[in-house]
């Protein structure tokens, strides 16, 4: 059964140090039976995409609360595409205005979650999408 575990990379792009949400989500996904790799702070888009490929994950989740999401999230999406890894489920969360959410969801993100989303909803969402 172990090989059927959904593999997820949770990453903090840029210099943002707020990782409460990222860590809480990582643990919730683990408790839901997924294999989760958390990158730690201060990762570049390159490092994140390399880690995603190397770890052969099905899901990449990005977190930023510093306002750098437009630039950094977009770079991760573009790099995944360049490397032919666009099948991965790409999600994000943080302090992200509605306008930017819509923009990112048009530009390669499957879903941007807003503050207040329950981890159960994210677990359900990932299971649905990955098993589709």
């Amino acid at each position: 059964m172990a090989q059927n575990k959904i593999r997820v990379l949770i990453a903090k792009p840029g210099l943002d140090g707020h990782d409460r949400g990222a860590k809480v989500l990582a643990q919730a996904l683990r408790d839901a039976g997924m294999e989760v790799i958390y990158t730690g702070l201060r990762r570049t888009p390159d490092q994140i995409v390399s880690a995603a490929i190397q770890e052969d994950v099905q899901v990449v989740g990005l977190s930023s609360l510093s306002g750098a999401h437009n630039n950094l999230f977009q770079k991760v999406a573009n790099l995944l595409q360049e490397k032919g890894y666009e099948d991965v489920l790409l999600i994000g969360g943080g302090i992200i205005p509605e306008k930017d959410r819509k923009q990112l969801e048009k530009a390669g993100f499957d879903r941007i979650f807003s503050p207040g989303t329950s981890t159960e909803d994210i677990v359900e969402y990932i299971k649905d999408k990955v098993n589709e």
């Binding site: 840029g14 210099l15 943002d16 140090g17 201060r42 570049t44 510093s66 750098a68 437009n70 630039n71 950094l72 770079k75």
Partner: peptide, 18 residues
């Protein structure tokens, strides 16, 4: 801003977007 808080000038590669 974060680059300042981490002792990086604004043209540092890691400051990109921040």
């Amino acid at each position: 801003d974060l680059p300042t808080q981490i002792g990086m000038d604004s043209d540092h590669p890691l400051a990109d977007g921040e």
